[in-house]
Design a protein around this nucleic acid. Sequence first.
RNA 1: GUCCCUUUCGUCUAGAGGCCUAGGACAUUGCCCUUUCACGGCAACGACAGGGGUUCGAAUCCCCUAAGGGACGCCA
Length: 501
Amino acid sequence: MTIRTRIAPSPTGDPHVGTAYIALFNLVFARQHGGQFILRIEDTDQVRSTRASEEQILESLRWLGLGWDEGPDVGGPHGPYRQSERMSIYQQHARQLIESGHAFYCFATPDELDEMRREQQARGETPRYDGRGLELSPSEVQRRLGAGEPHVIRMKIPAEGVCVIDDMLRGKIEIPWSQVDMQVLVKADGMPTYHLANVVDDHLMEITHVIRGEEWISSAPKHQLLYRYFGWNQPLFCHMPLLRNPDKSKLSKRKNPTSINYYRRMGYLPEALLNYLGRMGWSMPDEREKFSLAEMLTSFDLQRVSLGGPVFDVDKLNWLNGQWLREDLSADALVQRFRDWAFNVDYLGQIIPHVQKRIHTLSDVVPLAGFFLAGMLDVKAQDFENAKLSADQVRQILQFSSWYLDGERAWNIENLSAGLTTIAQAMDIKMRDFMIPIFVAIAGKPQAPSITDAMGILGADISRARVRHALGVVGGPSKKEVKAWEKQYRAIFTSDSDAGE
RNA sequence: GUCCCUUUCGUCUAGAGGCCUAGGACAUUGCCCUUUCACGGCAACGACAGGGGUUCGAAUCCCCUAAGGGACGCCA
């Protein structure tokens, strides 16, 4: 049997280091066994999936050196590799489950279900689908289908007993069926949910080992049951520990830069980032810290994965990156890397027009535009002091801006200007004054080329991180303030729907 | 709240019953190298969550408790 693994990212946001982490282990496991590693795009969420996100994810993984044998860009014998292009396959399989009596139609509206869950919670029960769709008579179902009523398809779940999941790392995991919901398989828009699509595709694509994050353990019973319903052999499951923030919660962009692009723009080497990810939950048999993908491949042993959730520690990543920079690159090679990173026509070409009017000599460029080549800026609380704004106003400006920037999905100058203007107006602060702390946060000083242009050039990742860093320097909201501020912030954007989250 | 997963220095980890007086790495501190800073070298600090078993012997196996985390969506 040929070992086949996959990474199945959802193109709904920035390329996440967690995706790279799981991809790494899937790739290494497959290659080590002479198998294949495939990439599948899980874009069944029509609302949030974008082609731009998909392209970025592919590009980021390629940058890291994680290549796949089959995927939407390279093709393969089991395509298409984009779930939105496999609709008929899911419909056919969903129909099969209806016919075999393993799934049923449900006409409940989202509002109706929200209310049901609220009532259940009020009664102290676990929110759970109550099976109302099951009580409809076949003729009633036919009538409503015929009338074109919106509906979903849900899977049936055993009323009692326990489901046993065999995990390659954790052994047998027992989950009572009473804990498992009658999951929606096909949404009202006709798209399958992850649960259906993932099982159907993994089977059709002949995936033998599903290595994924720990967050999936609780839905594994549904997946296992679907394999049974279809009469298929199921792949082996392996749930990896989740990457964590320093406070141990699941790694999130609220608390940490999670985008691969961030690390790229900060100037980490792909080899080093990959190496670091390989050290998360895994160790070389000889305990060496620094190793290449090729070395990891030859020494890999899944059993060496440790299950405690590893904290993503930037200090150690910095050290490791330094090791790679010093030990694996000649001075000439480093020159090349440096040029490719930011001293290239593409990047410099965006920056120079903004400084041209402001310089007298070429040597003025770096003092003026050096912040375009920097990572985090060394700003102090006093850098934010100014006559126009109180300290609290500065803090609030940075917090609101940070929230806004984190939520802005279409990162372009027009949107950024509009978003920041909206906040300034709501706070009743003149734009000129409002921008002072933003200038300091992004450029390190209160005067610089247009700051929205600068944010556009720097990109979302570095810009967000700098604003967040600045907020940390001046002091973010206290626990008390957070609540009030969040409320105010929401009020700013409720009438203006294209920004915020 | 319910279910599930996890638990070795602050952090990443080694450790598959005796090799453990628990090893390495990052961070921190000190010293050396050095015109400075870094790099590098040396050293120090620092952990088996708690309680019960099993065993001649437990960081390692079992149970309980606690803590942390995850899931509970027509998101993935």
